[in-house]
Design a protein around this nucleic acid. Structure first.
Lengths: 335, 335
DNA sequence: CTAAACTACGTGAACGCTCACGGTCAGTTT
DNA sequence: AAACTGACCGTGAGCGTTCACGTAGTTTAG
């Protein structure tokens, strides 16, 4: 194996000092065009690539960030990864990926491991960890952007969708379509703390419809979870004519449950998702859902993180995005 | 922001030298149990975490690897990411993720960027780059594991599925079910170079069925690509009763095309996928497909890479996995 | 009883860069 | 002619570790 070519090799070859090579490749001034060209040429000849490790050591900026994600299999989350990756690539940054499976302990481990990696910042989606823990890491010279939860603190910034409002829109739409008995499939956790539930409850109460917690099912936010939750809900309560879900994966799981239970979608049960993953429009019946712009959010998260790194003392207000309802064939009007 | 605590801080606090701290935390010998405990305790008290950058500089082992993937949105590929991530996490390694979108130029850029990052090794799935380019990187002290393509060279090792054989199984199965006019949807590239096509062609010829290239459609390996390819194929050739595809995403796209063209699946057209993503069994009709164990392959790729890093001079034979046909409802017997 | 071997530490150098200086030499000003 | 620029380039130190030694003190062997 060949030994790595260093900046000194280039310097020797070009007949200049290390610093001049550094000046040439980093576009600094204090160097003539002539020498710059010559240095750049020898860099090319030798196939030299500066070591990011060494650069990070010397400059205490690693040009590297961490991304902690709940479940990479979920296309909606994968889209965030893709957006963030593309944005990072454009700015010559690399990203460490960590999959937490929505387990707090793994999230903590990821946080520790990434700070040891001297990342310049971290993006974390749907954290399970308490805000306090997050801020303790953020204070260690490691700004954090939180997606999907609202956290406000020094060196922490958040990008969220207006889940509560979106859920109100969904339930309003269902009620407007004649549905009176609406179930909700949502994520695990304390029901009182879930915005998804807030929007659901609020709308029912506003419209003078009964709110009963037995119509809420909690499960893992994937196909299997959606299937099981819907199965339970529909078996228990024969009156349900509509179910709103936490994400498209759960919605697709719910549709399978309907099929297995012999309930037609949307004739017997209307199903509504959340995310608008590409599959949503490719299945039969196509899925009514809320459009979450994962790719764009990934980009924004990166941009925001860069701003926080460059201006550490500034406070950044949370970004709250509204999302749009996309009506397709998995829902219908009744009566 | 707090300044980072270094090994010297710990040493000072514990009243020992740097090296002794290093010995304590790395489980080396040449240190008494008593001092080790005391050092470990102060490490804990100070919340010290060794810098991976510095460690990488000093030891020329960054405990970091790179993963270059074609399309993270594809659940089959996401599964590889997940498997590799979990395996890496267990061995205290971090992984840089790069999405290439199957574009050779981006793949090259990723390769350059990752080597600059001093990764210990790289895993790359479905590379578009020629083997020569790959080996040139592998020679620079950076072993490479290639998934999904067979490449044999020094410091390069590959893990592939027996695509040719799998495709033969698929086509044999379809012929056995009475299908005479079988289409193939595959990826872009030189048709003669694609194993998927080899298996298809070979089986038709063996069974004395006509092989005509107009029954092969090439497209991007995603939902949209599958849709367009199937649409074209089915519009052009009314006799087709079955289509084998390159992956499940394309198969799902093809099913949508059938729906839009008014062709029932499987009554009019049998569709067969490749990967067995979780969706495959959750849609209606459920998809007949080949089971690709993405998660396990991700794990294996990591393990293999570790072996290559630890024993650089050894040659590792390619791993070729056989994969199994899972028959569901998107295919049926005709006549 | 002394040489050798072992135990338990400490010290300088190195990894490959950047940063903050310092220096040189032309041209320009006083 | 001396002093002051400013453009250009070089030098030492340092980032936080590990590595290869070096060195006491203690035990073992001949």
């Amino acid at each position: 194996m060949k030994k790595r070519t260093t900046i000194d090799d280039v310097a020797r070859e070009a007949g200049v000092s290390r610093q001049t090579v550094s000046r040439a490749m980093n576009g600094m001034d204090g160097i003539s065009v002539h020498t710059r060209d010559r240095v750049l040429e020898t860099i090319d000849d030798l196939g030299y690539r500066p070591s990011r490790l060494a650069r990070g050591m010397a400059s205490s900026q690693s040009q590297t960030i961490g991304l902690i994600i709940g479940n990479i299999i979920d296309p909606a989350q994968a889209n965030v990864v893709r957006g963030l990756n593309d944005a990072a690539e454009a700015k010559n940054h690399n990203v460490f990926l960590r999959n937490s499976d929505n387990i707090a302990a793994r999230e903590l481990e990821a946080l520790k491991s990434l700070t040891a990696e001297n990342v310049d910042g971290i993006v974390i989606t749907s954290p399970s960890l308490p805000a306090k823990t997050l801020t303790s890491f953020a204070d260690q010279n490691c700004p954090i952007v939180v997606v999907h939860r609202e956290v406000t603190a020094k060196h922490v910034s958040s990008i969220t969708t207006n889940t509560e409002r979106a859920t109100r829109t969904v339930v309003e739409y269902l009620i407007g379509a004649g549905h009176q008995h609406i179930g909700l499939i949502t994520r695990m956790g304390d029901v009182e703390q879930i915005r998804h539930v807030w929007g659901y409850k609020e709308t029912l109460v506003n419209r003078n419809l009964p709110y009963c917690s037995s119509r809420i099912a909690q499960a893992d936010t994937n196909l299997k979870g959606g299937y099981e939750a819907a199965y339970k809900l529909l078996s228990k309560d024969k009156n349900l004519t509509a179910i709103a879900t936490y994400n498209d994966l759960m919605a697709l799981g719910a549709m399978k449950a309907c099929a297995d239970l012999g309930r037609a979608v949307p004739a017997d049960v209307s199903i509504i998702g959340y995310d608008d993953i590409e599959f949503a429009s490719h299945i039969k019946p196509s899925l009514t859902t809320l459009r979450f712009q994962g790719y764009d959010i990934g980009c924004s998260a990166f941009e925001r993180l860069m701003e926080m790194i460059n201006r550490p003392e500034e406070d950044f207000p949370p970004v709250i995005l509204n999302i749009e309802l996309v009506i397709r064939d998995s829902t219908c009007t009744i009566y």
